[in-house]
Amino acid sequence: MTLTSTARRLRRPMIRERRRETWYAIAFVAPAAIGFLVFYLFPAIRGVWLSFTNYDLFSSGEFVGGANYAQIVDDKVFWNALLVTAEYVVINIGLQTAVALLMAVLMQRLAKSLVIRGILLVPYMVSGVVVALLWQWLLDYQIGIVNNALDFVGLPRQSFFGDPALAIVTVALINVWKSMGYTALLLFAGLQAIPKDVYEAAAIDGASEAKAFWRVSLPLLRPVLALVLIVSLIGSFQIFDTIAVTTKGGPVNATRVIYYYIYDLAFNRYDFGYASAIALVLFVILLGITLIQLRITRANKSDLA
């Protein structure tokens, strides 16, 4: 037996081994990959195509070039919807992050009971439609408990969903209530990951509790905070269920957020081409915001490393 033949004999099983590994890899990746291709990539590409057609669900649609995009430029309802969505996102994310951060710190420092930590998560477990219905009852102008309480202490009743100035704020606050516990839990996990000795060092240097929070907790929490912000921001842009249940875009256009407008165009007015064009514009906006956010918060770098 020569040396080369031995080597050849040895190489064969190795190749076979590697091939088998490839098959395993494909088998493991397939469920996610097929789901991604069938439910995300293909519909997304089809959506891009539809945005250049006048597709109306019942006929296949003709190519209309950039007509849908030209229509967007002059569509006052679209620009108003963007503004209303932005208003919602700022109130929702701003308040939600602030409250969740406070809750996370309290969970770490004070509320060590598992039961209390669990209770904070309960609103998040409830379906969005149920949450919306619940608050619709609570905030009813005449028979809701909130307005009766206001009345009892001598304050004027408020039409939370019917007043154009209040409606979008109300919807934003409902969703702050729903998601703050979940966001707090994510931030809490981030806080737990910060080593104790950094705090000890801060204490030895004479830092107060507040200073330790601003100078130690917050900077070290940045990667988690960035992730939470990105995920919740995209989620916030997708506000739909609360509005579909409570205000349906009204009064006038005060809560006609971008997703509700897209839904209305597509499924009530069968204008799928135009709705797809708006969906695509929204996609570009979200992509841009996410990239900017990643850059600003340097989410991929941790100060602990």
Binding site: P43, R46, G47, Q238, Y259, F272, A279, L280, F283, L286
Partner: peptide
């Protein structure tokens, strides 16, 4: 009504 999850999925 079900919430739409991703922008592109709309017309799928």
């Amino acid at each position: 009504a079900a919430a739409l999850t991703a922008a592109g999925v709309l017309a799928g």
